[in-house]
Amino acid sequence: MIAFFRRLNALFISAVLFFVYFLVIGLARLIYVLSERKNGKPDSYWQLARGKQKTVELSTPY
């Protein structure tokens, strides 16, 4: 019985994630495509450290 409810729960989560993927991620993808800029080949692929990157905030997991 417990196994059945576990499987049902997993199925429910998958169904929710399925919709999240196609709707939310899909919408984000649309915005991403519309805002994407086409750049030519750069001279270097190094990303320079900006001011924000140079200071590290340690107290947050983000």
Partner: peptide, 16 residues
């Protein structure tokens, strides 16, 4: 997942 949409459904369902 946004960049690879709609080809990463399976990893999405597993990773999230």
């Amino acid at each position: 997942f946004v960049v690879t949409y709609p080809f990463a459904l399976r990893p999405f369902l597993q990773a999230i």
